[in-house]
Amino acid sequence: MSDSPIPTVDLRPWLSGDAELRAALAVTVDRALQNAGFLLITGHGVEPGLRARLRSAARAFFLLPAEVKQRYAARVGGRGWLGPGAEANAYAEGTETPPDLKESLTFATDEPFEDPVVNAEWYAPNVWPAEVPELRGPCEEYLGRMAALEKELLSLLGCALGMGTGFFSRHMDRPTYGFNINWYPGAEVVGEPRPGQFRIGPHTDFGTVTILDRQAGRGGLQVYTDEGGWADAPYDPDAFTVNIGDLLARWTGDRWRSGRHRVLPPPVDAPAEELMSLVYFGECTPGTLVESVPAPVGRVAYPPVDSHVYLRAKLDSIAVD
Results as ranks from 00 to 15, higher is better:
R250M: 11
N126C: 09
A313R: 15
L40T: 01
L156C: 04
W122C: 12
D100F: 06
Y177K: 11
T208A: 14
E152H: 07
G228Y: 10
K102S: 10
V320G: 02
R174A: 15
L149E: 03
D110G: 05
P129I: 00
Y224R: 12
W256K: 01
S2T: 15
R59C: 09
E273W: 02
T176L: 06
F198H: 08
P125N: 04
S317R: 13
T42V: 15
A124R: 14
L40K: 04
A124Y: 03
A86G: 06
R53T: 08
G45W: 13
D30Q: 07
M1Q: 13
R170K: 12
L315E: 03
V46Q: 10
I318W: 09
D246T: 11
I211N: 09
A52K: 14
A60D: 15
E47K: 08
T225K: 10
T285N: 02
Y142S: 01
L54Y: 06
R51G: 05
A233P: 02
P185I: 02
G17I: 02
L212K: 04
D115W: 02
G162H: 07
R194C: 03
D205H: 02
L21P: 00
P5D: 05
L248I: 12
G207H: 09
L40Y: 01
A32Y: 07
P237I: 12
A90R: 02
V68S: 11
G186R: 10
L161G: 01
P13W: 07
S2A: 14
T210F: 04
R312F: 04
F179G: 04
F113V: 15
C159P: 00
R214Q: 14
V127C: 06
Q34G: 13
A272D: 07
M1R: 12
L64I: 06
